[in-house]
């Protein structure tokens, strides 16, 4: 009875065979799901990044502005469109409540995507392929990315960042190779 004190000696009660089997199976399963994470870093294609730097919001903004100036090809809804060359460092800035610039990438090319915020914590969600990362002020978070499909994507902010949060929607364009 789980509500009454137990007599001394309970530690020596043998465990039933079925229960032992269950615990064994559960343990093996737990080990397997623990191992899959490091293993996937070796065999998998999509992993979180380990590269990040501390940076102030102002410095991140300056880097983004310089990047925009260098590769700007147009403007949509007042937001700059930039077309950086394959292999380059590209910058996305989160600010209440806008993502900028609009990145125009090439399918199959690899980029170093920098994520940073100049105010609150934001998060990117690349829609509809569902890739989500936190964008934290004070950090320059670098993901190495290779767009595998062409098309127009949305960048949805999915971390609450103030009352205008739901309007924080950006765009990402991937041109076919």
């Amino acid at each position: 009875m789980s509500i009454y004190a137990v007599k001394p000696g309970w530690w020596n009660t043998p465990v039933h065979r079925e229960e032992k089997i269950w615990i064994g199976v559960a343990l093996v399963w737990c080990i397997a799901i623990t191992l899959i994470m490091p293993v996937w870093h070796v065999v998998g294609d999509q992993n979180s990044s380990q590269e990040y730097y501390r940076i102030s919001g102002d410095n991140y903004a300056a880097l983004t502005d310089a990047f925009i100036e260098q590769y700007k090809v147009g403007e949509v809804q007042g937001i700059a469109v930039v077309a950086p060359p394959p292999g380059s460092d590209i910058f996305l800035r989160g600010a209440q409540w806008q993502w900028d610039p609009i990145l125009k990438l090439t399918q199959g090319a690899t980029y170093r995507l920098h994520l940073g915020s100049v105010d609150m914590v934001h998060a990117i969600s690349i829609f509809p392929i569902n890739i989500n990362f936190e964008v934290v002020p004070g950090y320059d978070y670098v993901l190495t990315i290779t767009p595998t499909s062409a098309g127009e994507f949305r960048v949805i902010c999915n971390e609450f960042c103030g009352i205008g949060h739901h309007g924080m929607i950006g765009k990402l364009i991937v041109d076919p190779a």
Partner: peptide, 24 residues
């Protein structure tokens, strides 16, 4: 959520944003 709907969002379709989002 598996179709990408964000949590903590008053409007997922982007009515207040520069771009609209349409879900499955």
């Amino acid at each position: 959520g598996r179709f990408g709907v964000p949590r903590r969002s008053w409007d997922m379709n982007g009515v207040d944003g520069p771009f609209q989002v349409s879900f499955d």
